[in-house]
Design a protein around this nucleic acid. Sequence first.
DNA 1: ACTTACCGTAAGTCTTGGCTTACGGAGATG
DNA 2: CATCTCCGTAAGCCAAGACTTACGGTAAGT
Lengths: 97, 97
Amino acid sequence: MDALGDRTRRAVFEQLRSGPKSVGELAAGLPVSRPAVSQHLRVLKDAGLVSERRDGTRRIYELSPVGLVELRDYFDQFWSRALDAYKEAVEGKRGRR
Amino acid sequence: MDALGDRTRRAVFEQLRSGPKSVGELAAGLPVSRPAVSQHLRVLKDAGLVSERRDGTRRIYELSPVGLVELRDYFDQFWSRALDAYKEAVEGKRGRR
DNA sequence: ACTTACCGTAAGTCTTGGCTTACGGAGATG
DNA sequence: CATCTCCGTAAGCCAAGACTTACGGTAAGT
């Protein structure tokens, strides 16, 4: 969640939704330099959101399903609790609407 | 999404899951000062994630369902596209595992 | 072996933004 | 009207981190 807090990082993440890409390809579609993308990829990788693969001198990055599942679980829990809280609140003040 | 990028802001958000709270109450449960909480609440409010209500000199904040729905929709779309991309990738390299 | 392509890392700069202290305003209470 | 509570805003400080340039390392091609 922290990893997706940065705009550029989300942009990288979104680019990867359309399939695996090399660092150069990712950087080409963004307004920042290649090393910057590299650093963001490192963060995303440490967060378990992407995985790395080597192809000659290139590094191919792709979305990591395990990280995605974790993220969704966290968010689902986040979400359901929030909904429960809201539902209780509404039932509490019966008569509204 | 930007609004939830900060840890403290997420903490505020989580506190509000257990029901509406005043600024003072929120600040009491956090390691930061009351004005800091006020500023975070402003961001969350601008993002449509919380709503404000006045009760005498106090301000009561609570989760805003509209913002929550927006957030979930965004995330669902985010999620489904990512899954689709991954599914295609797996089908593409048939034979693995 | 030399060169080229592609990339990660280090070092340094600079902006962003989170936090605090100080202040002032609005409402409740006597 | 005086005071007290509760809060938002302004100003300023400071650390976090995003970005760039420079460098070195590995793999492929000639």
